[in-house]
Amino acid sequence: MNAPSPPIHVLQFRGHTLHAMASGALHWPAAELLCVSDLHLGKSERMARRGGPMLPPYEGIDTLLRLDADIAATRPRTVVCLGDSFDDAASADALDDVTASHLRPLMAGRRWIWIAGNHDPGPIALGGTHLSEYRLAPFVFRHIAEPGAEAEISGHYHPKARLSGRGRGITRPCFLVDGDRIVMPAYGTYTGGLHCDGPELSALMAPGARAILLGVPPVAVPMPRRPA
């Protein structure tokens, strides 16, 4: 029995077919690869550790349950986590048993690549392959977009976009796509976003870029930009 096909947005990038998933994951069916970015596991723990608020400590479970569902739907042989998978190096070490016990079965039986992020640069004890960037032709996967890069898939910025339709404003995390790069939305449950009409993302993305807003299914619009 086939699982119902998940709601996706199909996009062509550098001659390859990629699926932007409603959850914020990116699926490359031909390579049997699933890519997610900015899981920020351990965020609530880090905040409490630093004397901040004690947020509901369930975001790790929630993030991994969604990842579990995406893996079940796409059956990837390779999973690439594009960095900032852990909120900081200490959260990776301090990962609670519940979260760790959800993560291990997901990693079992497939190639698992941890790309280093700016929050979690150090190696971690969870297994998997640790890389600063990963190349699988024609793509390069890294945490932060590099100027002048081509065929690059990155995360870091947590892009989000705002639309207004018939008197209702809608703000959603989004993929940003131009001819050279894809910037992924943050996958973690407790992650904010950076408006793509701010200066940084407006400068990064080429004219004609699109934003693919998360939804069921995700929908593409011309990327909202900073007013000139």
Binding site: P53, L55, P56, Y58, E59, I61, D62, Y157, H158, A186, T189, Y190, T191, G192, G193, L194, H195, E200
Partner: peptide
Amino acid sequence: MPGGKRKSGRQATFSSDILYDTLRKYD
């Protein structure tokens, strides 16, 4: 934090709605 003043950092705050949903789901 959420809903309060925006931090100057790149990754802005996340919505308190997420906290509400998470709490309702798990606790």
